[in-house]
Simulated assay, not measured.
Amino acid sequence: MQQHMIDSYRAARLGAPAPPVPGTHDVATLRGIRDRRRFEAVLAGRLATGRLRAALAHLLTPHHHRHPPACH
């Protein structure tokens, strides 16, 4: 925030346009990161979407034991 104030002051003195407010491009940046991860997942042959849901479903579904429990 302090850097933005300094840059705004400098721009006003030089007659230049003010810099964007901090956080202006955060959503676009996060969207770009998400899209890049999806793209890399597709290139690697993994699911591009729903990976978290698939992982949770895998963890929450009952699995059959590799060895049946011993009968007593």
Score class of each variant (00 low, 15 high):
Leu30Pro: 01
Pro22Ser: 03
Arg38Ala: 01
Arg31Phe: 03
Thr61Ala: 15
His72Asn: 13
Leu60Ser: 11
Phe39Met: 07
Ile33Val: 10
Ile33Ala: 07
His25Cys: 06
Val42Phe: 06
Asp35Ile: 01
Arg34Val: 08
Gly23Ile: 04
Leu14Cys: 04
His58Arg: 12
Phe39Val: 02
Ala55Lys: 01
His58Lys: 13
Thr61Cys: 11
Asp26Val: 09
Pro68Tyr: 01
Leu14Ile: 07
Ala41Lys: 02
Met5Leu: 15
Ala16Met: 12
Glu40Pro: 02
Arg13His: 09
Ile6Glu: 13
Leu52Asp: 03
Ala44Gly: 04
Arg34Leu: 07
Ile6Cys: 10
Arg10Trp: 08
Val21Ala: 14
Gly32Met: 05
Cys71Val: 15
Pro17Ala: 07
Val27Asp: 13
Ser8Met: 15
His67Asp: 11
Leu14Gln: 14
Arg51Leu: 07
Ala28Tyr: 03
Gly32Ile: 04
Leu59Tyr: 09
Ile6Asn: 14
Leu52Asn: 05
Leu52Arg: 13
Gly45Arg: 02
His67Asn: 15
Val27Arg: 13
Leu47Ser: 07
Pro68Glu: 06
Arg51Asn: 05
Val27Phe: 12
Pro20Ser: 09
Gly15Tyr: 00
Ala18Ile: 14
Ala48Met: 04
Met5Cys: 13
Leu14Pro: 02
Gln3Glu: 13
Val21Cys: 10
Gly32Tyr: 05
Gly32Asn: 12
Ala28Gly: 07
Leu59Ala: 12
Leu30Lys: 12
Thr24Leu: 11
Val42Pro: 00
Ala57Ile: 08
His63Met: 10
Arg51Pro: 02
Pro20Tyr: 05
Leu52Glu: 11
Leu56Asp: 07
